[in-house]
């Protein structure tokens, strides 16, 4: 099954570039994901202050500076993996460096046939 590993982290981690040790941990994590053949896709996000939120009411487009929700820990990126079950996905999530200093959420990806395949595997 496909799972999204959603990475949340406190503001401080957005503002400073990761030190060598943390960079190393992330690189090693990504490498082990692809070595194990579970990696499908990933993306890292800039600071929440760079976010812009859009809503549409009728004809009106409402654009707002800032992230959708102001919370202590903000979405910082995602990794999509394919594993036999949630158990393995959670194991991978636990190995994610952000699990040490933020929070990592695992959610199954909803596959919708009518859509153009998002992740061609």
């Amino acid at each position: 099954m496909k799972y999204s590993i959603l990475i949340y982290q406190p503001d401080a981690y957005f503002n400073a570039a990761p030190d060598d040790e943390l960079w190393g941990a992330w690189r090693a994590y990504h490498k082990s994901l692809s070595d194990a053949g579970v990696y499908l896709d990933s993306g890292a996000l800039k600071r929440p202050a760079t976010a812009t939120t859009v809503r549409v009411q009728g004809e009106r487009r409402l654009v707002q500076d800032g992230p959708f929700a102001e919370t202590k820990e903000q979405l910082a990126g995602f990794i999509v993996v394919e594993t036999p079950s949630l158990k393995e996905a959670l194991d991978w999530a636990a190995r994610c460096p952000a699990a040490q200093y933020g929070a990592v959420e695992v959610r199954p990806v909803q596959e919708i046939e009518q859509f153009v395949p998002v992740f061609s595997s």
Partner: peptide, 10 residues
């Protein structure tokens, strides 16, 4: 400063 950073980064 925050607004200028947003212009650049976003």
């Amino acid at each position: 400063v925050r607004a200028k950073t947003k212009i650049r980064d976003a």
